[in-house]
């Protein structure tokens, strides 16, 4: 039983990071039907912002050397600005383009940011100590976890609540939801499309920045493609969660995390290397049973 609870805790720590990544992706999908593959690179940009731009093998801390109350807002500012810039320069002109064009644009942006990082910082992974004290162990009787897991899970919960409150309680949030439902109608009723979409980008930037801080604190490593896998998983999570639903994204992230963690534990040694194959079998089964995802949104249904 203890082992079971322990695995649940372990699963939650993996799932919450996936969930946060999924939330950033799901938000933009909901608002403008954009699958933003550059989300992972927003995360990388945030992480690299912690160090002085240079290709030196041993990095010097820049924003990362500031105290946390300054460092975290600074990273958020950097990533949110990049996200806003991407919206203004790339996605706004493409607003009326079809989803496949948007997809290609987000891929291009992703490659651009990756190569920019390569050019400035070089390819070797870099070691940084930001937030490393959070990796200390936390024991509760026979159970153990780490402070970073607790921080990650709480951050996920807090951000979900914050985003949900924003969506339901603020004017911008309500406009954003209206735009999600029917973009043209919302515009006709006076919703300022540019502002609404820019806000969505800014929020996804903030989410990405927080993920970058959490990843760096956990792994202590910067690498040019550090978040690309995470974003793939995040994307899968938004699909099984129900595209467009924020709660669905979080749920989807947790499902992938929990399924991965349990499979890691129960699969025999020889099959563990192919764990992800089993994870995706579960994903396919879930999609067969609930093609609209775990949380069905009325607005996302195709109306004939």
């Amino acid at each position: 039983m203890t082992t079971f609870i322990q695995i649940c805790i372990d699963a939650a720590s993996l799932g919450s990071l996936y969930a946060l990544a999924a939330l950033g992706i799901g938000l933009l999908w909901g608002v403008m039907k954009l699958i933003n593959f550059a989300h992972g690179d927003f995360i990388s940009v945030g992480a690299y912002a912690l160090i002085v731009p240079s290709s030196a093998v041993v990095p010097t801390l820049f924003i990362g050397a500031w105290p946390a109350p300054l460092m975290i807002p600074a990273v958020i500012l950097v990533v949110a600005s990049i996200a806003l810039l991407a919206e203004r320069l790339i996605f706004r002109p493409l607003r009326t383009a079809d989803p496949s064009t948007l997809l290609v644009a987000s891929f291009s942006l992703s490659f651009f940011l990756q190569y920019l990082i390569l050019m400035i910082y070089g390819a070797r992974p870099k070691a940084v100590t930001v937030g490393s004290t959070l990796n200390a162990e936390l024991t509760l009787g026979p159970l153990r976890t780490t402070y970073i897991d607790v921080v990650t899970i709480s951050a996920t919960a807090l951000l979900l609540v914050a985003v949900a409150l924003f969506m339901t309680r603020t004017r911008f949030g309500i406009q954003m939801r209206a735009a999600t439902q029917d973009f043209r109608m919302a515009r006709m009723l006076g919703v300022r499309a540019n502002a609404v979409i820019a806000t969505a980008f800014a929020i996804s930037g903030i989410l990405a920045a927080i993920v970058s801080f959490l990843i760096v604190a956990r792994t202590g490593t910067l690498a040019p493609r550090m978040a690309s896998q995470l974003v793939m998983v995040g994307f899968v999570a938004t699909v099984i969660g129900g595209m467009g639903s924020l709660v669905g994204c979080i749920l989807g992230g947790f499902v992938v995390g929990v399924v991965s963690a349990f499979l890691q534990f129960v699969l025999p040694e020889d099959l563990r290397a192919t764990r992800d194959a089993f994870v995706f079998i579960v994903v396919i089964l879930m999609l067969l049973v609930r093609p609209e995802g775990l949380v069905r949104l009325r607005s996302q249904k195709e109306r004939v």
Binding site: D10, L14, L17, Q229, Q264, E269, A273, R275
Partner: peptide, 22 residues
């Protein structure tokens, strides 16, 4: 005593640690 696997993207190896501890 055994072998366990992980992927870079896992970022948390909590389950693997639980197994070593066991």
């Amino acid at each position: 005593l055994g072998e366990d696997t992980y992927k870079i993207a896992d970022s948390s190896i909590a389950v693997q640690i639980t197994r070593i501890k066991a």
